[in-house]
């Protein structure tokens, strides 16, 4: 077996984590010869992206579609995410499936804090994204991203199970592209980025505080 003697220049470095900086074309060539080359980072991301354990945590209507995604027809097990864990300590992914009320919001944040890193959050459905049809409600939190960072937003009311699967695939893509070291390393590898977030308290009229400015800033209105 002969190795390709083309040494990659730094300019040929691709964002995709390549093993030993060998170009993808060469690795593909090697693969056809029966040699698999990979990097620790790639192997690690490949493994964890294909065995995401979601938290078994349903809030409202979207939870039924989440269950439907887990049943025979849509079968989320094809994507390695069928093991719904009832305990946040064992979960990698929180699917916020449904309306987050102000009474529920502190508990969602608490569950998020209890999950170990690396952890990811999917806001499933219009309510979890922004309050959705219930936005006018006095007890409805206008988007879970006011308190915890959200990785994937899945619009819909409720989103179809296919949409949830698509969101899961997007998340897998994101995980596969994460760096484990270097200046652009993933969030969970950095010591300066918190993995726990302050839990809002029940106030006399509203949650206190109503949002976490470190996580969320309101969208800027158009300058006009």
């Amino acid at each position: 077996m002969e190795m390709s003697d083309a040494t990659p220049t730094p300019a040929a470095y691709t964002p995709f984590p390549a093993a030993g900086n060998i170009p993808d074309a060469d690795r593909e060539d090697l693969r056809r010869h029966g040699v698999l080359m990979t990097s620790m980072e790639e192997l690690y991301n490949w493994g964890r992206s294909n065995s995401i354990w979601p938290l078994q945590f349903g809030l409202a209507c979207c939870a039924i579609e989440m269950i439907a995604a887990a049943t025979a027809r849509f079968d989320i097990a094809r994507f390695g995410a069928e093991i719904f864990r009832p305990s946040p300590r064992q979960a990698d992914l929180m699917i916020v499936s449904g309306t987050v009320t102000k009474k529920m919001a502190p508990l969602v944040v608490r569950l998020w804090n209890q999950m170990p890193e690396p952890k990811y959050c999917i806001a499933m459905g219009a309510c979890a994204i922004s309050g959705g049809p219930f936005k006018q409600g006095y007890n409805v939190l206008k988007g879970i991203d006011r308190f915890i960072p959200v990785d994937i937003y899945i619009p819909g009311c409720p989103p179809r199970p296919e949409a949830l699967l698509n969101g899961l695939v997007q998340l897998q893509k994101k995980i596969k592209g994460e760096k484990l070291s270097g200046p652009d390393a993933a969030r969970f590898t950095r010591a300066d980025v918190p993995s726990e977030f302050p839990i809002p308290e029940y106030g006399a009229h509203d949650l206190e505080p109503t949002k976490n400015p470190a996580v969320w800033t309101p969208p800027a209105p158009p300058s006009a």
Binding site: L59, A60, C61, I64, G98, T99, T101, K103, M104, L107, C127, P133, F134, Q136, G137, Y138, N139, V140, P158
Partner: peptide, 30 residues
Amino acid sequence: FGYLHRNHEKIAENTTYLGSMPYTDRLDYL
């Protein structure tokens, strides 16, 4: 109770009669 209290009744008081119909879907979503 109350962890899913999303103010259906209050919202319906500010919506037209027909406008509340989609909200009733989300009452008992099964």
